[in-house]
Design a protein around this nucleic acid. Structure first.
Lengths: 183, 183
DNA sequence: CTCCTAAAGCAACTGTGTTTGCGTTAGAGA
DNA sequence: TCTCTAACGCAAACACAGTTGCTTTAGGAG
């Protein structure tokens, strides 16, 4: 061997196993909620030996975080329409659409259970994105980043967690309208 | 026996056991978060046999929901000052104060994990209380119950779950001010 | 095609949460 | 005080998540 790197084997069987596990995790999280999913359960649904899962990821938390490529991409482009109101509407619609997917909603609820000690990815990223959009318009902006969090992000996340059936196509624009009303 | 009702024994020992379990649950939920608490753990801290806990409640979810009498009492009086704004401010302050207690916050996060399928106590009660206050002022009310949920309850609950360190004495009144601004 | 070994499978074992049968303690009415 | 039995304690059995050593399968390089 001419290199000192470990040989990997991402092809064939490993890929098939990975894919069936991913499907099983999505199904089970959606069906039962993240808290009621176990590794043996995932392995059985995937038609795979539990040992394989333990060897690859070690624990359920690590596995789900790694499998969950369906979370909101932190590197995705932030809407830039030239109007703050339109930017916020488009951005809020992305968030609503993302969490109308039951799997994503279940993952958010699971994350909420262990939140509160440190700022989670969810809140930190949303806060950063809100700040970015508002600051584009500088002192002329009628709203602050904190107001965006309190009156736009918070209602959406609250509904995702406790009242997911109230989310619809007009939720985001309604909230933005109220945020800008009287300003 | 002249009655066909089962004899209960709420006094003495049973009350002592119940109380020591209640204390143990509060401590452990605050220390570890609801998700990392188990029944044997509670029983040991309480100096009680785990069997007693299983026999009384069956499972941890039921036990915590039952023990948690420190949650906001649904029968407590709703503020009635004569002004909707003042009512809402007082009411929101109660909620903030309640959830600034780390035990209550941890219980809310735990509840969030299993929410989303049915409307939880938390959301149903808040919605009912908001409706009650707003309806007192009928058609003259500048805000709707849904607006109260979106712009007052949701920001508070969002902060409790994800940003508990941002809750302070002025949080409630700031939110109410923004809710009424421009109306 | 052949060799090497990454990665999966298998099975036995451990630790811990949960159930169950039975004996003991102690609250409440007679 | 006496009796009845609800509620607790105890210990053995059970269920299942997670671990470990070994074997088997199959991807990739030569």
């Amino acid at each position: 061997m001419s290199t000192n790197t470990v040989q990997r084997r991402p092809g064939g069987r490993s890929a098939a196993v990975l894919n069936s596990i991913k499907v099983a995790v999505e199904e089970l999280v959606r069906e039962k909620g993240r808290e009621r999913v176990t590794i043996p359960m995932v392995a059985e649904r995937a038609g795979v030996n539990p040992t394989s899962v333990y060897r690859r990821w070690g624990d359920l938390q690590t596995m789900i975080n790694d499998i969950a490529t369906y979370r909101l991409d932190p590197a995705r482009p932030i809407p830039e329409t030239g109007s703050l109101k339109a930017d916020l509407t488009a951005w809020a619609n992305e968030i609503v659409d993302h969490y109308r997917n039951p799997t994503n909603a279940a993952l958010l609820r699971g994350g909420a259970a262990s939140a509160g000690l440190t700022e989670s990815d969810c809140t930190r990223n949303r806060r950063a994105e809100a700040g970015m959009m508002v600051e584009r318009y500088g002192a002329t902006s009628p709203v602050t980043p904190d107001e965006v969090l309190d009156q736009l992000v918070a209602p959406i996340i609250y509904r995702v967690i406790f009242l997911p059936w109230t989310l619809d196509d007009s939720t985001a624009s309604n909230l933005v309208d109220r945020l800008f009303s009287g300003r």
